[in-house]
Amino acid sequence: MEPHILILGAPGAGKGTQSDNIVEEFGVEHVTTGDALRANKEMDISHLGLEYDTPGEYMDRGELVPDEVVNEIVDTALDEADGFVLDGYPRNLDQAETLSEMTDLDVVLYLDVDEEELVERLTGRRLDPETGDIYHVEFNMPDDEEVRQRLVQREDDTEETVRERIRVYQENTEPVIEFYEEEGDLIRIDGEQTPDEVWDDVKSAIEENA
């Protein structure tokens, strides 16, 4: 059976990069709440007795999709996956408890990165509006001068917005991290190493536990 992996970490901790590595190495599916919601926009949720009958109606109105809907969609996505790396869920303690009823996890990885490092990573990101490629002012700038000239900072990457995103993440997710620590499932990974060093630790943790 393919491994069931949960990856946790603040915005900018490197979850996307490491999830891609996990998918390639272990042949599992990358399940994110955003992708799962987009893939199931038309799912019939009328039996939940909520305001709308499909997740898409919340999304089209820019409203927050209720927990019960997210839970149902994640449950469906995990059921359909042979093995998975789950990223972006659970975001709070209620969701963590619900997840433990849905599936058994082999390993819970937490990419641990200091707040100042996260701020530096996120505020340094630059977007190429023509290609959608993401660069970084310190770690990864394009060689082409023309591309450099047109790079922009996304609105949600300004320092004020970044600090608020991290604050909200910490407030909601601290209890989740404590929950998995108490269960004895949490493996802390030093997320401030180079991406290759982080990957070495991630790969070892999965191989030893899954």
Rank of each mutant, 00 (worst) to 15 (best):
L127V: 10
L37W: 02
L105E: 00
E97D: 10
E101A: 11
E97I: 05
E159F: 00
D133C: 00
E146Q: 11
D196S: 15
N172R: 15
Q18Y: 13
G184T: 13
E171N: 11
T123C: 11
A210C: 15
G27M: 09
G27S: 05
R126N: 05
E160M: 05
V107S: 03
I22E: 05
V198Y: 06
L50A: 11
A13L: 04
P11W: 08
I177N: 08
E164K: 14
E25P: 00
L186A: 07
P90S: 08
E146P: 02
E197W: 09
V198W: 09
E146K: 13
T76G: 02
E120C: 02
A205R: 12
K203L: 10
D190C: 10
Y169V: 07
I206E: 06
R121Q: 07
V147H: 00
S204H: 13
M102R: 09
G49K: 06
V31F: 02
Y180L: 06
E160P: 06
E68P: 14
G12T: 08
I206W: 00
Q153P: 00
E155T: 12
Y58D: 03
I206C: 12
P90E: 06
Q95H: 09
G49H: 04
T17A: 09
P3I: 02
M59E: 00
E160L: 07
T123S: 14
V168C: 02
M1R: 12
Q153V: 08
N140L: 05
I187Q: 11
P195E: 12
T76W: 03
N209T: 14
V65T: 13
N140K: 10
V113E: 04
N172H: 12
E171G: 03
V108I: 09
D128Q: 08
S46P: 04
P90M: 08
Q193T: 14
M43Y: 12
H47R: 11
G191K: 10
Q153H: 02
D44R: 08
G83M: 11
H4P: 04
Y110C: 05
E80C: 01
Y169S: 03
T76E: 14
G9R: 05
L118F: 02
Y52E: 06
D35P: 01
D190F: 10
A10K: 08
V28I: 14
N92H: 11
E183A: 15
L105I: 06
E197A: 15
E63I: 06
E138F: 03
E160W: 02
D60I: 01
V69D: 06
Y110I: 03
L50N: 10
E63G: 01
P195N: 13
M141Q: 13
Y169K: 06
E117Q: 12
D35C: 01
E42Y: 01
F179M: 09
L93N: 05
I5L: 11
A10Q: 06
G12I: 05
D94H: 13
E80D: 15
V28W: 03
D128F: 07
E2F: 11
D75N: 14
T103H: 03
D53N: 12
P90D: 10
A81G: 08
E145S: 10
V85P: 03
S204A: 15
M43E: 14
M141V: 09
E117M: 13
E42W: 00
E116P: 01
G27F: 09
E101G: 13
A210V: 10
Y135G: 03
D35V: 07
V85D: 08
R165H: 04
D35Q: 12
D128N: 15
T173V: 15
T33E: 08
Q95V: 09
